[in-house]
């Protein structure tokens, strides 16, 4: 049976190009690098645009999204596993972001193991409330994507370092 509606969306090459250029510029201004294999990277951009249409956010193309933002927050691109994966394996899980060495083609870009915990563990993590000290003049918010810390009443709308949105911040202290 042919799938209809939201599964039929096919982003145009112009749109893919435009988003790719924007993403590349943003990445490099923040000290990140897109995969230098342009064909590969544009396929990922296309998938991200498809997921935006499907779910309303950039769910990782290489992971199964639940379609509920709350449950998918950790895998909204850039995912919270990107930085550790780039440090350990020179690439993020899907291969969109890579290390400087991989960008300069000093090391190969290969598939890497999945570090996202399985569903049950994630559910437990979501339900665990952290005990936080409350004697500070301001709460400290941590960007789950890049680790940026901000001591203020509420997190910023957009992370000034990695551009992640407000909902990706968690109370740290």
């Amino acid at each position: 049976m042919k799938k209809i509606g939201k599964y039929d969306y096919e982003p145009s090459n112009e749109e893919i190009d435009r988003v790719y250029q924007k993403l590349k510029k943003e990445a490099e201004s923040g000290g990140y690098f897109l995969n230098p294999d342009e064909e590969f990277t544009k396929l990922l951009v296309k998938s991200l645009l498809i997921n935006e249409k499907r779910y309303g956010y950039w769910a990782c193309p290489c992971r199964l999204a639940e379609g509920e933002k709350e449950k998918d927050l950790d895998i909204i691109c850039p995912c919270i596993y990107r930085d550790v994966d780039i440090n350990e394996y020179n690439t993020c899980y899907c291969g969109l972001y890579v290390s400087k060495d991989a960008y300069d083609k000093k090391v190969p870009i290969t598939p890497i193991p999945e570090r996202r915990p399985p569903e049950e563990e994630r559910k437990k993590l979501r339900e665990t409330k952290k005990e936080l000290p409350s004697q500070l003049p301001y709460p400290v918010w941590r960007c789950t994507v890049c680790g940026y810390l901000a001591a203020r009443d509420s997190p910023p709308d957009v992370c000034p370092i990695c551009k992640a949105r407000k909902e990706r911040f968690e109370r740290f202290i």
Binding site: L43, P61, C62, L64, C94
Partner: peptide, 9 residues
Amino acid sequence: ALSTCIWCR
């Protein structure tokens, strides 16, 4: 597989 995943492709 996933239709959006390049490694699956």
